[in-house]
């Protein structure tokens, strides 16, 4: 039974997400649309599971939720900081820097989330992975202390992601 369940739903969360997205796309919550969304949510992960074979082992939804809230708050603060830098710092005084982040995370899903978070938050863009995927290259728009930014990324985001993906 468990094997059948695993075969039918290779990614249960993806199924749920697809059903919700489909219902939102229709902009109307009715039984028919929800059922059709669930059908799509079963067929699509089943058909594409060849390209996403490894199921993330553990995944804490509660911690993911609080992580999303923290990131959203950071995005807001970040935007105001970046807007201020854009308007007030002249080009000659701008101090862009590269930061190489050694990764403790190993799961591709977790690294993708970390890279996405870094790009969405204050003045940092994740630019490249090392050839075996154990380091992340980050570009900072304006900083006096690159080490502080590195420390911030590691304690604020990576540590939390380690707790989400166990």
């Amino acid at each position: 039974m468990t094997r059948f369940y695993n075969w039918l739903l290779p990614h249960p969360l993806l199924t749920l997400l697809l059903a919700v997205v489909w219902t939102l796309l229709q902009n109307d919550v009715s039984a028919g649309m929800v059922v059709f969304g669930v059908i799509l949510g079963i067929i699509i992960p089943r058909m594409t599971s060849i390209w996403w074979p490894d199921l993330p082992k553990g995944f804490h939804i509660g911690k993911m939720f609080s992580y999303c809230l923290i990131v959203m708050w950071d995005i807001l603060v970040a935007n105001i900081q970046v807007a201020w830098i854009v308007l007030s710092v002249p080009n000659a005084k701008l101090k862009p820097a590269w930061i190489a982040v050694p990764l403790k995370l190993r799961q591709p899903e977790a690294i993708t989330l970390l890279a996405g978070t870094i790009t969405l938050t204050p003045g940092t863009v994740s630019c490249d992975l090392s050839n075996e995927g154990h380091s992340l290259l980050v570009h900072v728009l304006h900083t006096d202390d690159p080490d502080a930014v590195l420390e911030d990324i590691k304690t604020r985001y990576e540590r939390r992601l380690e707790e989400i993906f166990v």
Binding site: A100, P102, C127, S130, N131, H134, S135, L137
Partner: peptide
């Protein structure tokens, strides 16, 4: 990075080079 239109990034702390 590939077109070398920016500063060359520093070497990664783990692994040999950047994938690009």
């Amino acid at each position: 990075i590939h077109m070398r239109t920016c500063e060359t990034p520093p070497a990664p702390p783990q692994d040999t080079t950047w994938s690009t």
